[in-house]
Design a protein around this nucleic acid. Structure first.
Lengths: 187, 187
DNA sequence: GTCTATAAGCAGATAGAC
DNA sequence: GTCTATCTGCTTATAGAC
């Protein structure tokens, strides 16, 4: 793997875990085992340019990851269970969550950088779109599907937050069990 | 109002909006119109001690604010609608959300400081407890109430995140409309 | 394309005057 | 209890050698 891809891969993980300001450029360089020269060669605008590249990288990850799960599974609920199971396994194994979330980036950058805010907004919209499409296939109307998809996105993002705060995967497990009731309520 | 209380009040708002690392000590001092000497007189352990004081302040705000709403309203749903309405009004008026949320603090501090993580965990538990108590009064079993309360906490926190990302209060409005269906599904 | 060395600035924190 | 002045260390970013 080339240096640039490796940098994006590592920085993506670090940003997801500690947020943008929480990670110093030096920390990224140290983990990558490269120096400043290399960073500013690949990303002339420095740290923020690297962050944007990371958000694009997450976009691709979502496309090639969540979409596969949603295509493979029969119903929305099946797919969501599989997705949450992956998050839970990740959390139990590594102690942090590194996929399908960027709350730390949103909360500190939304009010500071429009390009970053827009990239995050696109990502949420994309996830919501995948859920929504599947819900329509499940038989829900377009509008109802839109509402449910938004609530799912919010619930999962909030659930991740609760897991990180409590240092257990319990909240996401309870959410996984409870989500079918959300759909049931909309029928 | 004395200097210390004013500092906590202002810092609470700033931390909620920009996260812990996103706010510099100098910024807080400038808004408060005081100097370093005053800060380190009141909070010898500096910025982190101020953050803990802010989290305690939020705890009180929840007690004197959310609890009042939940006592005044007949059902859980009524109370939640009132609560979300307050958040939406806050967002539409000021462009940011300053109440009932600390996601920005959680996401960057959970892995770095145990005291902060614990304080945040307590706050979520407190909110969830208020919801849960009301749900039991509504007729749900203790276990079901616990699950629903957790999902509500997650959904609202995630909804706030979506609002900040999209720069509209739409997500929270849709969640407010959709939450009754969550309860319906659990019956 | 990656290195070293260094700049310029801001972070949080401290000491001591008043 | 609040001020000013100052310190140390870390931040991002740049310049120029290889």
């Amino acid at each position: 793997m080339d240096t640039k891809s490796q940098m994006i891969e590592i920085a993506t993980n670090l940003f997801q875990q500690k947020g943008y300001k929480g990670v110093g450029v030096n920390e990224i360089l140290k983990v990558c085992n490269i120096t400043k020269g290399a960073l500013y060669h690949h990303f002339p605008n420095g740290k923020e340019e690297l962050l944007i590249a990371c958000l694009k990288n997450m976009d691709e990850a979502i496309t090639t990851d969540i979409e596969v799960i949603f295509e493979r599974c029969q119903t929305t609920m099946e797919a969501l269970h599989a997705m949450i199971e992956k998050l839970v396994a990740n959390l139990d194994r590594e102690g942090t969550i590194t996929g399908y979330t960027f709350s730390s980036i949103v909360s500190e950058m939304a009010s500071l950088s429009e390009p970053v805010r827009n990239a995050c907004s696109d990502l949420y919209t994309k996830m919501q779109g995948i859920y929504s499409k599947k819900l329509v296939a499940d038989g829900f109307s377009k509008e109802t599907a839109h509402s449910i998809a938004l609530m799912m996105t919010a619930t999962i993002e909030g659930g991740i937050m609760l897991c990180l705060t409590r240092k257990t995967s319990e909240p996401l497990k309870i959410i996984s069990q409870g989500l079918p009731n959300l759909l049931k309520g909309f029928i």
